[in-house]
């Protein structure tokens, strides 16, 4: 279970979001929504530990993530806007690298990679360099990590951008499948998500005017 307790996010001494609390249980897919610039990406990066959160606490399996960072990292798959595809390597080399990062056992790597490539529809492109693929195909290479994952918590930032309708459905189906198997997912998307079981609307966590006065104190101090 992933639990956010009164989480707040600051940018340049200005509160972006405050008081976010939610509990994501096994089997749930949370759709994180909010207008551009509200801080969706910043929040997700805060949750996965790529930046610090400025208020509140994050609990993973009833323990603060700082105290259990190893266990948290083992169960976490984070895919940001950039999916980590290495342009000069071929599709299959990229996939094998992802499989290794997800702790798949060496014996299973070959079959998992073939399965993942099949699932994202890149079987015929296995030996092409990623840089020679189209934008959508590159995204598919990165998103193949969803089929190469052994992690239970998926944090996906805009996974559906640049994908065609079929691929969008395919990704959503995969997320739904993951949640049915007891995983959980936090997904930002501007498109409706069929697989979502819960919604976290960030526009309800904008800072109140009272709090934003501290921002001026901070600026004076600065």
């Amino acid at each position: 279970m992933l639990e956010l307790k009164q989480v707040g996010i600051q940018r340049e001494f200005e509160w972006l979001l405050q008081g976010i609390s939610c509990q994501a249980k096994a089997g749930e897919c949370w759709h994180v929504i909010g207008p551009n610039g509200v801080g969706k990406t910043t929040l997700l990066r805060g949750i996965v530990g790529l930046r610090t959160i400025d208020a509140g606490e994050i609990y993973w399996q009833q323990q603060p993530v700082q105290e259990n960072s190893d266990g948290f990292a083992k169960s976490l798959l984070y895919l940001g806007h950039q999916l980590g595809v290495t342009p000069v390597l071929t599709v299959v080399e990229n996939l094998k690298h992802f499989a290794m990062l997800s702790h798949l056992p060496s014996a299973e790597i070959e079959s998992s990679v073939a399965n993942a490539a099949e699932s994202v529809g890149l079987m015929h492109k296995l030996d092409s360099r990623a840089q020679d693929l189209s934008a959508g195909q590159k995204r598919r290479v990165g998103l193949s990590q969803l089929w190469l994952s052994s992690q239970s918590l998926w944090v996906l930032d805009e996974p559906l951008t640049a994908l065609d309708v079929q691929a969008c459905e395919m990704i959503q189906k995969r997320i739904a499948e993951h949640c049915q198997q007891g995983g959980m997912a936090l997904v930002t998307s501007h498109q409706p998500l069929g697989c979502a079981t819960n919604t976290l609307d960030l526009s309800t966590y904008l800072p109140s005017t009272e709090i934003s006065s501290t921002r001026f104190d901070a600026e004076a101090w600065y």
Partner: peptide, 14 residues
């Protein structure tokens, strides 16, 4: 790695 996002992937891996 920084530009391709792989560095973030490394940092969030175990």
């Amino acid at each position: 790695d920084f530009e391709s996002g792989l560095l973030d992937r490394y940092r969030t891996s175990s």
